[in-house]
Each structure stands twice: as C-alpha cells, then as structure tokens.
Simulated assay, not measured.
Amino acid sequence: MNKFDRERPHYCHPQVILKTPQRLSAMALTLVSIWIAAISVAYCYPTAFQDLGESSKNRTSIRFLAIGDWGGVPYPPYITAVQKATAREMSKIAEQMGADFVLSLGDNFYFRGVDSVDSPRFKDTFEYVYTAKSLRIPWYVLAGNHDHAGNVKAQIDYTQKSDRWKFPSYYYELNFRIPNTGKTLTIIMLDTIMLCGNSDDFLDEKPRGPLHAVDANRQLAWLQERLARSKADFLLVAGHYPVWSVSEHGPTECLLQRLHPLLLKYKATAYLCGHDHNLQYIEESGIGYVVSGAGNFLDPDIRHWNHNPKGSVKFFTGQASTLGGFVHAEVTKNKMVLTFLQAKGTSLYRTVLSQREFN
C-alpha cells in the first residue's frame, strides 16, 4: 500500500441519504456525487479572519515572506549553506521591513518528507534554523512533491506541537483584514500534488496525474467555490508546482489546464509557488506569477524560457552567488508590493500589483 493511501485526507461531509431509483444512470450518480462533494467542501471551510495581533493596530498594511524548497537534507547537519544564509537574511528583512507571517511553499523536508510527527527533522531543519525572534511568527505551510514522498499527515499533525507551524489541512483558505483600511486579503493554499500527481526528479520531472481522481476533483470543486465567492480586495493562490516557469521543471501542464482558467476568470492578484530552485517573476493578463524556490538550493537553468507567454518574464535569478533568496510582500489599501531578495543582503527586483476590480 502506498503511503498516500494510508493518509488520504479526511473531509467533513453532510449526512445525505439518497433514495435513488435503480433506473438512475451511473452518469447521473456520478454527477450527484460531485455535487455532494462540492457542497461538502463549501461548508467545511467557513470564512474566518486571522488575528494579526496587537502590532497591527497602528499601521495600514499586511507584510509577509514567501519561501519554498527550504527543506535541508536528510543527513547531518540536516541543513545546507543556502538554507542557513537565507534564514539569516529572512530574519533581518522581517525585522527591518516587517513580517506578520511566512508562506511556506512546499518541499519542507528533503528528500522524502518526514515519517512521523515525532521526526527529529522538525527540530533539525526547521525549529533550530529559523530561530530569530522576527521569524517566530505563524508559518502557513503547504506540501510539495518531496513532502508527499513521506507522510504529509505527520506535517499536518505537527501543527498541534508547534506554536508557529500552521498546517491545518492539505488545502485551506486564509483571510485577513488589512489593518485600518477596510480592505481584505485572501490566500488560498493548495495541494498541487494531490491535484496533479507527484513528479519524479530522476525521470522527466512531470506530474503524472492525480493518485486519486476523487480527491483531486474535490479540491478543484472547493477551489472554484472559494474563488467564485471571494470579494477580497487582494486574492492570492499558493501551491508548490508553478503555473509558469522558465526553469528546469517549466510550466505545469495540469495547472495550465485546471488552475490557470480559474485564476483568469476570478481575477486573482497573484499565484505563488516554489518547485524550481530560483526566484522568478512572470506577469500575464494582469496576474503576477511568483516563483520563490531558492530557500535551500539554487538552479540557474532557463531551458523553458520560450515556453512562457512572450514578454511575460520580468525577472529571474538562480545564481549561486546570491546565496539563496525569498520574497517579501506588503499589501496596503490599494496595492501589493513584491520585493525579491537575495540572501547576501540586497534587493534584486521590485514590482507592484493593483487591487482587484469588480465589474
């Protein structure tokens, strides 16, 4: 039995009893099942706003860091030089520019995730690395392909053992009120491995389709419902696999088919991801695509540059000389400012995205 079979996600479902005539076709039954799944997930995740604490009372923005692929190595000292340098710079930026939380974009533990909630990797690769007071803030976590090679449920359960590790479910929604503005920010955290399937870094590195189609479709139904309902002034979606990328893994065909149309239809502000081990900013149809996967390794590969929309690539770096990197975001009353930073202490690129406009 596959590890993923043992840890298939559990969702709440309404008690529905169907008295279906035998003559009802199998196709109709399938449609009813999908409808029930969609209704179920809509009511499993009621809208709630996260508390930013006392520090938010006298300001008018939300600030956060976004970093993926930071997950060390599975042998002593369980970290890399890039991870250590990036952690040090993250602490400085969080202190200087401010950070209310961190978005962790997957591949939290290389190379095969963790095996249990008591794994020493939580301490060796996370708690003992991001030690600065400025990083003792909520870390909102999602799973990457390397995490799915282990026990993702153990990472979810670690939420109960840590005061800052926040991983409530395989996919979930975060809602924030931007202090003193009347504006709101929503971040939808996805499990793109559940949605598209795992990838083998030693083969063609492409997702091979979801392991369980029902789970993938349930997540997609939930996502569409949340996007359609959202009136947030800033709407972000985050996952591990990229929609667009110039680097080794390139664009993810599954996400181009299943997620990309929804981002366009519902006017998402940006999509944030990791997977490729570099920093990228791609802008297409008014949506920002952020790749922040330079938390542990660096890769200067640009083999898929021409597989992205012409003129869409605005920024890329994966040079070893940067020592690693991450993204700082500040969301204000009417704009979102993204700053791409390298671990050796300088800003590399900055861009501004506008709030959503409703017709």
Rank of each mutant, 00 (worst) to 15 (best):
F4W: 12
D5A: 14
P9K: 15
I17R: 13
L18H: 02
T20D: 03
L24C: 10
V32I: 14
S33T: 06
W35R: 11
P46Q: 04
G53F: 07
S55N: 10
R59S: 11
T60W: 00
I62P: 05
F64G: 05
A66T: 06
I67T: 05
V73T: 11
T86E: 02
R88I: 06
E89Q: 15
K92W: 03
D100K: 07
L105E: 09
G106W: 01
N108K: 13
V114M: 14
D118K: 10
R121K: 10
K123F: 05
D124L: 15
T125V: 07
T125P: 00
V129R: 14
Y130I: 03
A132S: 15
K133A: 14
S134Y: 04
R136Y: 03
P138I: 08
V141A: 08
V141G: 04
V141R: 10
G144C: 09
H148A: 08
A149S: 09
G150S: 08
Q155C: 08
I156P: 06
K161G: 03
S162G: 03
D163W: 02
S169A: 15
Y171W: 15
N175Y: 01
F176E: 03
G182W: 04
L190T: 09
T192E: 06
S199P: 02
S199V: 12
F202V: 04
F202W: 07
G209Y: 08
P210N: 07
V214P: 00
L220F: 04
A221H: 13
Q224K: 13
R226K: 15
K231V: 06
L236A: 13
Y241P: 07
P242M: 10
H249L: 03
R258F: 08
K265N: 03
Y266A: 10
A268H: 01
H275A: 11
D276T: 02
I282Y: 06
V290F: 12
V290S: 12
G293K: 04
A294I: 12
D301S: 08
I302E: 14
H304N: 15
W305E: 14
N308G: 03
V313R: 14
T317I: 07
Q319N: 09
Q319M: 05
A320R: 12
S321C: 00
S321M: 01
L323D: 01
G324C: 11
F326A: 11
E330V: 05
K333P: 00
M336W: 05
A343K: 06
G345N: 00
S347V: 05
T351S: 15
Q355H: 13
R356M: 04
R356K: 13
